[in-house]
C-alpha cells in the first residue's frame, strides 16, 4: 500500500520563520478541514507572513479584517452563507493567535459563541504578542520573560498564570472544546475534523511554541511542544458541553525543569536567586493539571 501525502492548502514560500508554529498550526488546521472552508484570520504573524500583496499562500478563501474582530467576521460569513443558501457543507473557520483570541478579540468571540454560529475557532497559542515583538498577553505563562514582562532584579517575569480560555469558551455551552498541540499533529487534525463536523460553535486551543519569542533553536519547535504536554504543563483534552470526555494520558510525567531549560524566556529561573522556588511553583501547576485533568 502506498501512502499519499495529504494535499496542502497552505503553500510554502510564505515568510514565516524557520520552525514557525503558526505555519504548523495553519497547515494542520487545513489538513483537517480540507478545501471546502472559508478561513477568517485576525491580525498576527500568520496573516502577515502568508499574504504580502499581491501574493497569498492560501488555497482556500481567506479573509483578514482586523485584530479584534475574528469572532464577529466569522459570524457574518456564516450568517451570509446561510442567508444566501450557500452554507451546504462549507465550514467556517477562524484562526487567531493568543492576543487576538484571549485579549483584544475576546468580546467578539464570546458574542459569536453565545449566538451559536456554526463555526470553529482555533487559537494558536504561542503565549505572547510575537508579531509586535514578544510582548506579554493573557496567554503568557507564569514567570515567562517577555519584552513587557521582563525578568529583572526585582522580577521573575510575568507575574500571573495563563488565562484558562478553553474554560471560558466551554462556559458558553459550546458543544465541543478541545486543547491540542502542534507537537501532536494527528491529535490536532483529528480534533479539527471533529470540531468542524459538529453543528454549532466549536473551539480548539492549540499550544504553539514560537522559536523567536521563546528562544529556542528552529529545529526544536515540535520537540518543545511535546515537552509541554509530557510535563503536564499543557493538558490535552476533549470537552463536550463542558464535560471532559477524553484526555491524553502521560504515563511518566517529566519534571517541568526539562521543559523550562529549553527556552530563553525561562533562563532567569536558573540563574536568579529564588529561581528554584519559582520552578517549584511551576511544577505545582503541572502537578495540579495532572491531578485535575486525570492525566496519569
Amino acid at each position: 500500500m502506498t501512502k499519499v501525502a495529504p494535499k496542502m492548502y497552505l503553500s510554502s514560500g510564505h515568510s514565516g520563520c524557520a520552525g514557525c508554529c503558526d505555519a504548523f498550526a495553519a497547515k494542520f488546521t487545513l489538513m483537517g478541514a480540507g478545501p471546502n472552508c472559508i478561513v477568517v484570520n485576525p491580525t498576527g504573524c500568520l496573516e502577515v507572513m502568508s499574504t504580502p500583496f499581491p501574493l497569498s499562500s492560501w488555497k482556500v478563501p481567506w479573509i483578514h479584517s482586523l485584530f479584534e474582530n475574528g469572532g464577529a467576521v466569522a459570524s457574518g460569513v456564516e450568517a451570509a452563507l446561510k442567508a444566501l443558501g450557500k452554507k451546504n457543507d462549507t465550514k467556517v473557520i477562524a484562526i487567531g493567535g493568543d492576543g487576538s483570541t484571549m485579549d483584544i478579540g475576546i468580546g467578539a468571540i464570546s458574542g459569536a459563541f453565545e449566538r451559536g454560529h456554526d463555526f470553529t475557532y482555533i487559537c494558536m497559542d504561542n503565549e505572547a504578542y510575537m508579531n509586535t515583538g514578544i510582548q506579554r498577553s493573557s496567554g503568557t505563562p507564569y514567570d515567562a520573560s517577555t519584552t513587557t514582562s521582563p525578568a529583572g532584579k526585582f522580577s521573575f517575569g510575568n507575574p500571573r498564570p495563563k488565562k484558562n480560555m478553553p474554560a471560558i469558551i466551554a462556559a458558553h455551552g459550546s458543544p465541543y472544546v478541545a486543547t491540542t498541540s502542534i507537537g501532536f499533529p494527528r491529535d490536532m487534525i483529528r480534533k479539527v475534523k471533529k470540531a468542524i463536523e459538529i453543528v454549532g460553535p466549536t473551539y480548539i486551543h492549540t499550544h504553539s511554541p514560537c522559536t523567536t519569542g521563546w528562544g529556542f533553536d528552529t529545529s526544536k519547535t515540535l520537540e518543545i511542544a511535546k515537552l509541554a504536554v509530557e510535563t503536564g504543563l499543557w493538558p490535552m483534552y476533549d470537552m463536550e458541553y463542558g464535560e471532559i470526555t477524553q484526555v491524553r494520558r502521560i504515563k511518566d510525567p517529566k519534571p517541568v525543569e526539562e521543559y523550562l531549560r529549553t527556552q530563553k524566556r525561562f533562563k532567569h529561573l536558573f540563574t536568579m536567586e529564588g529561581g528554584e522556588e519559582e520552578i517549584q511553583k511551576i511544577q505545582d501547576t503541572a502537578d495540579w493539571n495532572i491531578k485535575h485533568y486525570g492525566l496519569k
Binding site: I38, G76, A80
Partner: peptide
C-alpha cells in the same frame, strides 16, 4: 465587523 464578513461572501 460581522457585516464585513457577510459582505465578503456576497451578502
Amino acid at each position: 465587523s460581522s457585516l464585513i464578513g457577510a459582505a465578503a461572501v456576497g451578502a
